[in-house]
Amino acid sequence: MKLYWARLPIHTGKVDMIILAVSTSAKYPSAALCSDSDSSCRTIIVQTDESGKPHSVSLMPLIDSMLEKAGLQLSDIDLFAVDAGPGSFTGVRIGVTTVNAFAYAEKKPIAAVSSLAALRHAAQGRFGNRILCMLDARNGNGYAAVYEGEECIVPPCACVQKEMLDSLSGTEYIVVGDCCGNHDSVNAGLVIAEVLARRADDSLKTCSYAAPMYLRPSQAERMANRANM
């Protein structure tokens, strides 16, 4: 397992809370904890399991280990956050189901964010205001969204990677994701960053039940549809 700490600036005046985030849409599952460390910064703990075990096997030990390191119980969490996809169909389902169970048991709210919205925070420190977030969906396909500053100008969609790139020709933008020669992966730390950004501008929406974001049918569904044609 990989464990790292990061410190992110926050806006003062917000109610302090402890956030547990889960991300399972990518190859490796990750979890993150966020809590106030002083009046101007938040301390972020992010832990990733790169053992290659199925998400269904590795996610709970990952969360338990992180809570133990932080000296926290699940009941201490004020807000559960989850990467709701798009991404791995099975992975997204595992993460969303886990967070729904936690929130139901502890009677706490959920913040569900798009993996593409979370991914845009991987572009911090890179030159450019327009960001193409694109994840590989195999066979030249992808999931994409385009952001300009804080505004999403192309909502999350399933696409052909080349067609998406061609549609942006003539404009300046940077690409983040795991395609086009990039190796940016969605993780729970980026989910936390998106939650904090929404919380800072009062646009954070919470719910009692999160639903996966599927932008296209799964491979099993596509094969079944072809068989019935």
Results as ranks from 00 to 15, higher is better:
2 K>N: 15
2 K>F: 13
3 L>K: 13
3 L>H: 14
4 Y>P: 12
5 W>D: 15
5 W>F: 15
6 A>V: 12
7 R>H: 15
12 T>C: 12
13 G>E: 04
13 G>N: 04
14 K>I: 13
16 D>M: 13
18 I>P: 03
19 I>M: 01
20 L>V: 00
21 A>V: 03
22 V>G: 02
27 K>H: 14
27 K>E: 14
27 K>Y: 12
37 S>N: 14
37 S>Y: 15
38 D>F: 11
42 R>H: 11
43 T>F: 10
45 I>M: 15
45 I>S: 15
47 Q>I: 13
48 T>I: 10
50 E>D: 13
52 G>D: 05
53 K>Q: 08
53 K>D: 05
53 K>A: 08
57 V>T: 10
60 M>F: 07
61 P>V: 10
63 I>R: 09
64 D>T: 08
65 S>D: 11
65 S>M: 07
69 K>C: 09
70 A>L: 00
71 G>Y: 02
73 Q>C: 14
76 D>F: 04
76 D>S: 06
77 I>F: 09
79 L>K: 01
80 F>W: 00
81 A>D: 02
83 D>G: 01
84 A>L: 07
85 G>K: 04
93 R>H: 05
94 I>P: 01
95 G>M: 05
98 T>H: 04
99 V>R: 04
100 N>G: 07
105 A>T: 13
105 A>H: 09
105 A>F: 09
106 E>V: 08
107 K>E: 14
107 K>H: 14
109 P>Y: 02
111 A>W: 03
114 S>H: 00
122 A>R: 06
122 A>V: 03
123 A>G: 08
126 R>P: 01
126 R>H: 06
126 R>E: 07
127 F>M: 15
128 G>F: 09
129 N>P: 10
129 N>V: 14
130 R>Y: 08
130 R>A: 10
131 I>K: 10
132 L>T: 01
132 L>E: 00
133 C>I: 01
134 M>L: 12
136 D>R: 08
138 R>M: 06
144 A>T: 07
146 V>S: 04
146 V>W: 06
147 Y>I: 05
154 V>P: 14
156 P>L: 04
157 C>G: 13
160 V>G: 11
161 Q>N: 13
162 K>M: 06
164 M>E: 02
164 M>K: 03
164 M>W: 00
170 G>K: 00
171 T>A: 15
172 E>P: 11
173 Y>D: 08
174 I>T: 11
176 V>W: 03
182 N>S: 09
182 N>A: 10
186 V>W: 01
186 V>F: 03
188 A>L: 02
189 G>N: 10
189 G>D: 08
189 G>V: 09
190 L>F: 02
192 I>H: 02
193 A>H: 04
196 L>V: 12
198 R>Y: 08
202 D>K: 15
203 S>D: 09
204 L>Y: 02
204 L>S: 06
208 S>Q: 12
208 S>V: 12
208 S>G: 12
209 Y>K: 10
209 Y>F: 12
210 A>W: 05
212 P>S: 07
216 R>Q: 06
216 R>K: 08
218 S>M: 01
221 E>L: 06
223 M>Y: 12
223 M>V: 12
229 M>G: 15
